[in-house]
Structure formats: C-alpha cells, structure tokens
Amino acid sequence: MAIDKEMVKRLGILSRLRIPDENMDEMVNELTKIIGWVDQLNDVNTDNIIPMNSVVEDMNLPERVDQVTDGNIRDDVIKNAPDQMDGYFLVPKVVE
C-alpha cells in the first residue's frame, strides 16, 4: 500500500492531529515502513478460514438488566471539562 503526503494529510484530519509540513516526509516514510511490516500478514494463506469477529468467539456478551443504576453525578462528569456553565459542557461554537 502506497502512502503519500495526501493520505497523511487526510489521516491527520480524520484523527484530529496537526502534522506540520516539515514533518511530512518523515511521516510518509515511517507510515510506509509500518504498513510494509503489517503487510507481511498478506503472505499467510487464509483460504477457507472463517474470519473471527472477536478473540473470544465462544463467550456470550455480558448483559445488564434494564435498571437505572447510574447517573446523577453531574459534578463529577463535568468536573474535568476545560469549560463549563450551568451544568453544561461548553465547546467552541459548532454549527453543522
């Protein structure tokens, strides 16, 4: 898989990472190496093997009963927010 500057830029946007231009070549280089290493997996023959969806396929998903057992901890929930007012989280204005 070829990694170029365009893709690194896009990955940066998707993962909300600022990648300075001067680091671009280094990023492309490193990601290419990483992908190349992971690419080794393609050498393994996986014909006729059913893909696993989880490493604990034979376990049942734990469930909870429908009861309210949590909440009413507003102060704890918003305590670490960079900005808050009247019990709300505050974020820079976003209008989509």
Partner: peptide
C-alpha cells in the same frame, strides 16, 4: 447553539 456568542452548550 443559541446560549452564548462563541460557545455551544453540550447536554449528554
């Protein structure tokens, strides 16, 4: 979006 000039309020 209408509570503050530069901030949005979040209720989860």
């Amino acid at each position: 979006h209408d509570q503050h000039p530069s901030k949005s309020f979040v209720d989860l």
